[in-house]
């Protein structure tokens, strides 16, 4: 029988993959992909806890996480397009404007 721990371990592995991506990516679009990976990992943990404790609260929080992810993508991609029109690049290293 698959237990809660199995799901939490998978969720932790996926979350750490996403965090490694956030730490090493320099392209902003790829950085967004890594944050989506992290949000999905958290959703798995919420759904698993909801199932094993017979409680709907976890699923509710997963819905709100999905709503937040959708609005994050809408605003973030708008900012990304503005940045690309302004700088011609979406690389984080090109956005450094302060010296020091």
């Amino acid at each position: 029988m698959i237990g809660l721990t199995h799901y939490l371990i998978v969720s932790a592995i996926l979350f750490s993959i996403g965090l490694v991506g956030v730490l090493r990516r320099r392209n902003l679009l790829m950085l967004f992909f890594a944050t989506e990976v992290m949000l999905n990992a958290v959703n798995i943990a919420f759904a698993a806890i909801s199932h094993y404790y017979n409680d709907l609260t976890g699923q509710m929080f997963a819905f709100f996480v999905i709503a937040i992810a959708a609005s994050e993508v809408a605003v973030g991609l708008g900012i990304l397009i503005v940045l690309y029109k302004k700088n011609g690049s979406i690389d984080l290293d090109d956005l450094v404007s302060m010296k020091g």
Partner: peptide, 15 residues
């Protein structure tokens, strides 16, 4: 929040 995000997306991308 989704409405605000939609308006923000339209304004940012639609400049």
């Amino acid at each position: 929040m989704l409405l605000v995000a939609m308006i923000a997306g339209i304004i940012l991308a639609g400049k």
